[in-house]
Amino acid sequence: MVDLAPYRAVLASRIRAQRSHRASFRLDLGSSVLVGFVELAEIAVLFLTVDRLGGLDLAAIVLVFGIADMSFSLADMVFGHCDNLPTYLKAGTLDVFYLRPQPLLAQLVTSDISLRRLARAAVGLAALVAGLVVNDVAWSLANAVLLVLAVVSGVVTFSAMFVWAGGMQFFLVDGYEATNAFVYGGRYAATQPASVWGRPLVVVFGFFFPMAFTAYLPTLTLLGLPGSDWLPGWLGWFAPVAAVWAWVLALASWRTGVRHYQGGGG
C-alpha cells in the first residue's frame, strides 16, 4: 500500500496558497476562459468559409474540440508544471527531491497543481456538451462507455505527453521549447480533423504521439463517420491502447532523462 500522506500534504498546501491569492487566482481563471474561447474561435472561423473540413462539419468539430480541450486542461492541471523542470534543473531544486523517500516523478507531479486550469476545462466541457447536443448521437450504452473511455484516455494520454516532455528536458534544458512542438502542438493537433493530415503527420500525431486517438477518432466512432484510410472510424475504441502506449513512451523518456541527469549531464 502506497502512503499518500506526503503527496496530500504538498498538494493541500499548494491549493491553500493559490486560494489565498484571490485577485491573482480570479485573473488566472478569467484569462484561462478567454484563452479557451479564442482557441475555439480560431477553429470556428474556418467554418465560416467552408461547410465541411476533412469530413467533419462545424458541429462535429465542436465535439472534437470539447473532448480534446477538456482532457488536455485536466491533464495540464495535474501534470502541466512538469514544464517547470528546466527551471528546477537550473536552480538545482531537483536535487532536493532526491533527499526525500518518494519516487522522483511522483514528487514532481505532486509538487504543484494548477487549479486555474479548471476554468479552461470548463470551456472544454461546455464545448463538449454543446457538441453532444448539436450532433446526432445515437445514444446507447456502448456510446456512453465510448465517451467516458475517450475522456479518461485523453486525460491519461495528454498527461503522458507532459511526462515525456519532462524526460526530454533533462537533455534540452534551454531548448525546452522543442517539446512544446509536441505537447502544445499535440493539443492543437488533437482539435483538428486528422483526415487532413499528410502521411508524416499521421505517423507523428496519429500514432507515435497518439493525438488522433484523444478526440478525433472517438468522435468518428461516436457519430458513425467513416474516417480515412489510415485512421478509420472504428479506431476510436482503441483510445485506451493509445493511452497505454503514450505512457510507455513517457516512462521511457523519463527514465532516460533521469539517468542522464544522474550521469552528470546536468
Binding site: P6, A9, V10, S13, V96, P101
Partner: peptide, 26 residues
C-alpha cells in the same frame, strides 16, 4: 543542507514547510 538550494517552500510559512516535510518522512 545544500547552501544554495532550499528544501523549504518559499511562498509558505516555515511551520507549514515543516508539516509537509514531516508527512514526507512519515
Amino acid at each position: 543542507v545544500f547552501g544554495q538550494r532550499s528544501q523549504l517552500w518559499w511562498d509558505l510559512p516555515t511551520a507549514e514547510s515543516f508539516r509537509i516535510l514531516a508527512a514526507v518522512h512519515g
